[in-house]
Simulated scan of single mutants.
Amino acid sequence: MPAGVGRRAAVVALAVVAVLLVPAATAFAGNGGLLPPPAHSPNAHRIRDAYVFVMIFVGVVFVIVEGALLVLITRYRRGKRDRTQEGPQIHGSTRLEILWTVVPVVMLTAICGYIFYKLPGINDAPPAAAANQTTITVEGHQFYWLFRYPNGAVSIGTMIAPAGDVVHENITAPASEVNHSWWVPELGGKTDAIPGQTNHSWFQAPIGTYVARCAELCGIQHALMDATVKVVPRAEYEAFIAARAAAPGGLDVGKEEWQGVCSSCHRLNETYVGPALGGNPLLRDRDGIENLVRHGLRQMPAVGENWSPEQIDALIAYTKTLPKQKANGFQS
């Protein structure tokens, strides 16, 4: 083999290996790279299967196209040919044109067929007895998630759900809100929380703690709009919602409101997104706080426009436990 041809073959081989190593390195990065996080709900398993199936086709197409590109660049480069000399004139090839038409059609048909096969198991919750399912309303607000349970109990920032049961999610947002997107990667796909509209999703998960986030840009503190789904035994879930329903204005609710809602934009001792709240008499003024959270003020959205009176009471009860501070942040 001539030396020039050998060098060209080596260059092409190295280029192909480099192209193959890029997705391989990304795959080895695990959940920080190419693959989605481990699935812990039947619908999430099906989403992951569909993702991997499509990724295989995409990877094959990428390698073929990029490999062909490198070969053609090498084979038909100008080389020692004079700049004014035209390269080889390639005319149509019926066989090749049929091939690059039929193969993509076959691939797309296979992908569509597999996706439609998986889709019912993603969208439709499995049948379950009444004792083995529950419904939780998920509300998107700037910049927090609020959860409403069947008995009227609420929580902010952390959803408590029964392990092994089918959990139906009614996902929405108040009419004056912006769009959000509820996403727990380990438990299923993204579902939009659209103001005034209710969308539906579901999961069925083992005991564990799962990270949720807002997957749609919704404002200045969008990056902090995350939540936790804590899946616990059924008895623990029942005890939690019973205790919350019995004390809707309790300190636990108020603490979640302060930490999950107020602290998204405010600090006691320093200006954050909003002004410092240390020493502000509003913290102990029920009417003032209620008016503020229900109607907002200037750039502050109405973060609690649909809160119950008990939720307002809970926030006041908690703010009264905060240390009294002067406006400069020092305790008085």
Results as ranks from 00 to 15, higher is better:
L14N: 03
V11T: 14
P37H: 06
H266W: 07
P185L: 05
G6V: 12
Q204H: 09
N291G: 03
A205W: 12
I73P: 00
A327P: 00
A68P: 06
P323I: 10
L35S: 15
H295S: 11
A27P: 03
A24F: 14
E238M: 13
E257A: 12
I73F: 08
V303Q: 05
P127V: 08
L69G: 08
C214K: 03
K255E: 06
G250S: 12
R8G: 07
G157W: 04
P281H: 05
Q197T: 13
A173M: 04
G33F: 07
R95K: 14
I194E: 02
D313I: 13
L21E: 14
G152P: 01
Y237N: 11
P195K: 10
A153R: 05
R294H: 05
F116I: 11
K118Y: 02
P2H: 12
A302V: 00
L14M: 10
H180K: 05
A27C: 03
A44L: 08
H168Y: 10
P120N: 07
H200R: 08
A175G: 02
G164T: 00
S263Y: 13
T84I: 14
I289F: 06
H200L: 04
L72V: 03
L146I: 00
A24P: 03
A131L: 06
V103K: 04
R284S: 14
W202H: 01
P23G: 13
G274S: 13
R294T: 09
M300N: 00
R234V: 11
P126H: 14
G250Q: 11
R244I: 02
A125G: 02
P162R: 11
G121I: 09
N280Y: 09
P37L: 04
L315P: 06
S176L: 00
P120E: 06
Q311S: 06
I316Q: 02
S155E: 06
L282I: 15
Q331I: 14
P2C: 10
Q204V: 04
T26Y: 03
F330W: 07
P281L: 00
Q197D: 05
I122Q: 08
A327S: 13
L187R: 08
P309W: 10
F147R: 01
P248V: 10
I47L: 15
I171C: 00
T84D: 15
S308N: 01
G274R: 13
M159A: 13
W202V: 03
A39P: 07
S41C: 06
I111R: 00
H45D: 15
T135F: 06
Y318T: 12
T134R: 03
A239M: 09
P206I: 07
V273P: 04
G152E: 09
W100C: 07
G30A: 14
T319R: 12
E139Q: 07
L108Q: 00
Y318H: 15
I194Y: 01
E305K: 01
H266R: 09
